[in-house]
Nucleic acid binder design. Structure first.
Lengths: 202, 202
DNA sequence: CCTTTGATTAACCAAATGGTTAAATCGGAT
DNA sequence: ATCCGATTTAACCATTTGGTTAATCAAAGG
């Protein structure tokens, strides 16, 4: 193990790894300690309890995956451009942390409470609401087909995230190795935008 | 609790409820026993171990959610009709068991092994392969745009399943109650097909 | 040096958990 | 009524697990 770093950050790194891989219920404090190469008591010395430690890891993951959705849709370019860019950026971003979406979705489905606080303390969804208005506007102006902005948003996120969440199934059913899967994801950056824009064409 | 039924089935029902809600790691044998209104030892009397019991519940869930994908695409009607129908049927089907997709995806991501056996013992994916050929054929004939059949398949499944998997997030972000969410799902039966068919238009 | 203070560890603890067992109970056949 | 196998239960067991504690270590300051 690469020691050297300060204990606090070592612990967080280890906790990230174990919690994300095994979930809150499946993770063992001892495993986190082992992963960090330290004594189990240190976990409690620095972070009180398993729940507290988990909260930190979860919030961090939530920020990486959900928050970008709030920001990335800002700007003043035409809506088609925005959509193209958000899809490309988002898939690229998730590719760096492909195991986070299923982690978040699993935990949020099992314990919706952990998300409530986070959403409230997260006013960045204002920009999503802006995007919604923009969609309605563009629909009325005939620039795009008139569609439900929520459904549009859901469609974009579905096409971007689902493949990562269903990865083992996809690879199992279509007998893909990791290289093939990465290629499939790469293709989707352009394709997902094509799908959405074809639908939006007035 | 409604007693009356034979113990074996009572246990399975209780196990379904607890495992699907809490996952393998989060589920407690005692909770299953309580839910079934029987002694914990009965679980082992009828089903040896927690893992064995879980396997039954998981396989059952897998059949309900994944297997239909293999069957529903059969038949000889034009491909656009098939897609429309598969989407409508599939969303309707999942609506009856909306908590199963996240259960399956969570478990499969945590323990891909449990899926491997199941996929091998499941030759019904032959019909998916048939569908793939059909897509390529239709592409060459100019009936639809030429697209990767795997991506098409993934797009369909993404649009159908993701909303159920992300339900707490969707309801949280857009402040929807259950009625509104059901409405959103109902809308998607037609909309998801529109999205796919607009993309496929040659 | 010695003391102090924060960091670290081994040992420990109580509760929870999956699983077992031996005894009790039930139900039908004789 | 009695026997016999299947079913059911309470009590028990070993292990795991999150968490605590008291002792040790190490560096800083005097």
């Amino acid at each position: 193990m690469a020691q050297e770093k300060n204990t606090e950050e070592q612990i967080i790194e280890a906790a990230r790894k174990i919690f994300v891989k095994r979930g809150l219920d499946g993770a063992r404090m001892q495993d986190i300690a082992d992963e960090a190469g330290i004594n189990k008591a240190m976990l409690h010395y620095y972070y009180r309890s398993k729940d507290k430690l988990f909260e930190i890891v979860f919030n961090e993951a939530f920020s990486k995956v959900v928050t970008p959705l709030g920001h990335i849709l800002e700007g003043t370019r035409p809506i088609e451009e925005k959509i193209k860019e958000v899809i490309d950026h988002y898939i690229t971003g998730i590719s760096q942390v492909p195991y986070l979406p299923i982690f978040i979705l699993s935990e949020v489905n099992q314990r919706p409470e952990i998300m409530i606080k986070r959403l409230n303390a997260q006013p960045s969804f204002g920009s999503i609401m802006n995007f919604m208005k923009e969609v309605i506007e563009a629909g009325k102006n005939g620039k795009i087909r008139e569609v439900s902005p929520i459904q549009l948003f859901l469609n974009i996120v579905s096409l971007c995230i689902f493949p990562f969440v269903a990865r083992p199934l996809v690879q199992g059913i279509f007998q893909q190795d990791n290289v093939q899967f990465d290629l499939l994801i790469e293709e989707r950056k352009k394709m997902a935008a094509d799908v959405i824009l074809a639908w939006l064409k007035p």
